[in-house]
Simulated scan of single mutants.
Amino acid sequence: MAETMRAAVLTSYGGPLHLTRVPVPETPEAGALVRVAAAGVCRSDLHLRKGELRDLTPMRLPTILGHEITGVVEALGPAAQGPPAGTPVLVYAPVSCGRCRPCLNGTEQMCDSASRLGIGRQGGCAELVAVPRADRQLIALDGLSEVEAAPLGDAALTSYRGIRRVALHLKPDSALVVIGMGGLAQYAVQLARQCTTALVIVAMRHAARREARARELGADVVIDLTGADAGARLRSACPRGAADAVLDAVGLETTMRFGAEALAPGGHLVVVGSMLGRIPFGWNCAPLEATFSTSFWGSLNELHDVLALARRGRLRSDIVTYSLDDIEQAHADLAASRIPGRAVLLPGPGPSSSHRPAATRPERHHHSEGDKE
């Protein structure tokens, strides 16, 4: 094996990503070295490189971003237990201790001593990545495409956890609003079909351009957020005249405010989008007994659920691929909202290409943790 590898390295907050050669990482004792096949680009990467999340997730520079990773196991450490060398895998980016209260409660992503590949630890925007714990971080793809699977490890997983958090409160006559139609929202609409029997309403900007796609993925009603009557149209579409739950897959102040104003008393607003918006919360600025919350990533068990759905053809996304050489273009396109779904980097040089799997309207199907056929 070569002693160096290509990687996109961030050396300073707000600075460019440098395509350069760096030493190949050592294989961790209980972990693995994975040759990266695909690395998803997430909007949080844009915030991370600007230093906008340094208080929440401090990083030591220089670093390599990329936390949505698939690849092939290159080597296992001497104490590792996990898929053998040569196995195509998805890498679960959170690194957990397995001993603290969140870990024992099955929420490894909230580990008291957590670190995450691509967010504090060296990530997947490189030819190889070191994975500390093969037993807790590597999942065999079992036939899933490496490109399509990469965003499942964060984008789909985050949406799944958000949907599950509100699903317990929804009935067949409930209304669930998903704000957005980017990568997170595309997964959220499909997951709403799998996890609930509620009316699914999609609220997004410029709805006329993407209404057909939203309905393909499972939306019952589509509302244009740019319309002056958006609030009135939403209320008229909801059986109770207001939404029982809102999942905001954008996270701007304007979308969060729209979601809060759409809620019925006792409703739930869950923010999964990472645009760093803020709104007031308290008496006289929220419906009675409404709950506002964020939802962060997802557990390892939840990731297994997501992969099971994907293997059954029930999760799709509009994916655009870029070579590692074009990482700055991928970030620029994401920042300018030119990517219809998710962006995925490929480790080798070559032209970028769009990759959109055929989509069918998902059937209504209640999915639980035990449903893993």
Rank of each mutant, 00 (worst) to 15 (best):
L199N: 08
M181G: 04
C285D: 09
S174I: 05
F281N: 05
T291Q: 14
S299G: 01
I179W: 00
G266P: 09
T255I: 10
V222K: 01
V221R: 01
Y187W: 11
D220K: 00
R213H: 15
P239Y: 12
P265R: 07
L170H: 06
G183V: 04
D224P: 07
I201K: 02
T291F: 12
A192Y: 02
L199I: 03
G218E: 00
A243I: 01
E211R: 12
G231K: 00
R233E: 09
A219L: 06
L234V: 06
A228E: 14
A249K: 01
C238I: 12
A243S: 04
T197F: 12
A237E: 07
L252N: 12
A264M: 09
W283T: 14
M204E: 09
G267S: 07
A286E: 11
A245N: 07
T294Q: 08
G277F: 08
I201V: 13
L247H: 12
D224S: 01
A237D: 11
L157C: 04
V200C: 03
R210Q: 09
T158W: 02
Y160W: 15
G282Q: 04
D248A: 08
A198D: 03
D248S: 11
G227I: 00
V166C: 00
G267Y: 07
V178N: 04
C285K: 09
V189C: 07
N284T: 15
A228F: 05
R235N: 03
A230H: 06
L288K: 15
R213I: 15
A207P: 08
V270Q: 06
Q190I: 09
G251F: 11
T226P: 01
R235D: 00
V178A: 04
R257N: 15
L176C: 10
H206E: 15
I201W: 03
